[in-house]
Simulated scan of single mutants.
Amino acid sequence: MTAVDFEGFVERLATVAGEAVMPFFRTMIGVEDKGGLGKFDPVTAADRAGESAMRQLIKSTFPGHGIVGEEFGSENESAEYVWVLDPIDGTRGFITGLPTWGTLIGLLKGGVPVYGTMSQPFTKERFFGDGGSARCRGPHGERKLRTRACARLEDATLSSTSPRLFSGGDLVAFEALEDRTRHTRFGGDCYAYCMLAAGQIDLVVEVGLKPYDIVALIPVIEGAGGVITDWEGGPAAAGGRVIAAGDRRIHAAAMDLLRSAGA
């Protein structure tokens, strides 16, 4: 299977997920808290409907493939090809009516991310990447994605989901990085990574990610010329502490600062 082989299938997955999710957006949808221990982690019927629709299509088309999803766990995770799904990345944005959420569809081959899509059905945008190239298609046409050059942290725009996700040494390190950068925006979830690939943001720094939060975004960022790793410079596909940058120079600088400040 090549990128050309499964590109059309990923489009179908994004379409069925959008059809399942959109009837719930900007409605009085019920919200459950699956976080516990005082940490709000919302899930809705829309999350479950979107993932169910994608799982059904994968199983009927590629019964030998594995699936890892946020809502319904893992199946056949040792398969050569494994789909990694997050039906609504950014559920907090979804339940407040903000279009900063998206459906993440990633594909692993032998444990390595080889293709990824972020689909935003409300804005009708889709971001695609295969690690070698990346593009965005929306109401205003299709264009190639390319990160922008940014050599110094002092000139960088930084994004993260929320400062409340950091604690202890990680919080100290993030605050040190924030002090060095020009501007910080919170609350972008998966959309922030796509804006990094589009050359609008320079750095995204997160903690506590799961594979379904990040696998789909890795080929998009790398395909646009960016770099994404964990805080130690290793692969980001397992989640955890992640740093994405549009320019390798600020990736290295940010990683050094995070390491030294959080020690």
Score class of each variant (00 low, 15 high):
Gly188Glu: 14
Leu209Glu: 08
Gly18Asp: 09
Val4Asp: 12
Glu19Asp: 11
Gly110Asp: 08
Ser133Arg: 15
Glu77Arg: 14
Gly116Asp: 00
Gly116Phe: 06
Phe127Gln: 12
Gly36Leu: 03
Trp83Leu: 01
Ala197Phe: 08
Tyr191Asp: 09
Pro121Thr: 09
Ala3Lys: 10
Asp202Met: 00
Thr123Gln: 11
Arg248Trp: 01
Gly240Arg: 10
Cys190His: 09
Glu154Phe: 00
Thr147Asp: 11
Ala17Tyr: 00
Leu104Trp: 08
Thr147Ile: 12
Thr184Gln: 05
Lys144Arg: 15
Arg249Ala: 09
Ala49Val: 14
Ala236Gly: 03
Pro99Gly: 05
Thr229Asp: 04
Ile95Val: 11
Arg146Val: 14
Val227Asn: 05
Trp101Val: 13
Ala134Pro: 13
Val31Pro: 01
Ile29Thr: 14
Gly188Arg: 11
Tyr191Leu: 15
Phe174Cys: 02
Ala53Val: 05
Ser167Phe: 01
Ala176His: 04
Leu158Glu: 03
Leu37Ile: 04
Ala3Tyr: 08
Ile201Thr: 06
Pro42His: 04
Arg182Gly: 02
Thr181Trp: 01
Glu206Lys: 01
Val114Asp: 05
Ala151Asp: 12
Thr181Met: 01
Glu70Tyr: 06
Arg143Thr: 15
Met22Ser: 10
Ala224Leu: 13
Phe72Tyr: 15
Gly141Pro: 10
Ile228Asn: 00
Met118Gln: 08
Asp41Cys: 10
His183Cys: 09
Leu98Gly: 01
Tyr81Gly: 03
Tyr115Ser: 06
Gly111Thr: 09
Phe94Ala: 10
Ser74Val: 13
Arg182Tyr: 05
Phe72Ala: 13
Lys34Ala: 12
Phe9Tyr: 11
Gln200Arg: 09
Gly73Ala: 13
Arg182Lys: 14
Asp86Asn: 13
Gly36Lys: 08
Ile88His: 07
Thr181Arg: 00
Pro121Val: 07
Gly110Tyr: 00
Glu232Lys: 07
Ile250Cys: 01
Glu178Ile: 00
Glu19Leu: 12
Tyr81Cys: 07
Asp86Leu: 03
Leu107Asp: 05
Ala53Asn: 14
Asp89Met: 06
Asp89Glu: 11
Glu11Cys: 05
Gly18Phe: 04
Ala252Gly: 04
Thr147His: 06
Tyr212Trp: 15
Val43Ser: 04
Val220Asn: 04
Ala238Glu: 14
Val10Thr: 12
Ile243Arg: 02
Ala134Ser: 15
Gly223Arg: 11
Val207Cys: 03
Gly234Asp: 13
Ile250Arg: 00
Tyr81Leu: 12
Gly225Leu: 13
Ala192His: 07
Gly208Arg: 03
Ile67Gly: 03
Ala20Leu: 10
Gly90Leu: 02
Arg92Gly: 06
Gly69Val: 01
Val43Glu: 08
Glu70Phe: 02
Leu209Gly: 08
Phe128Gln: 05
Arg148Gly: 14
Asp247Leu: 03
Phe62Thr: 06
Glu70Asn: 12
Gly106Ile: 12
Val4Gln: 09
Ser78Tyr: 04
Met22Ile: 14
Thr157Leu: 09
Met255His: 07
Met195Lys: 12
Arg48Asn: 07
Ile88Pro: 09
Gly246Phe: 01
Leu85Ile: 15
Tyr191Val: 12
Ser52Phe: 14
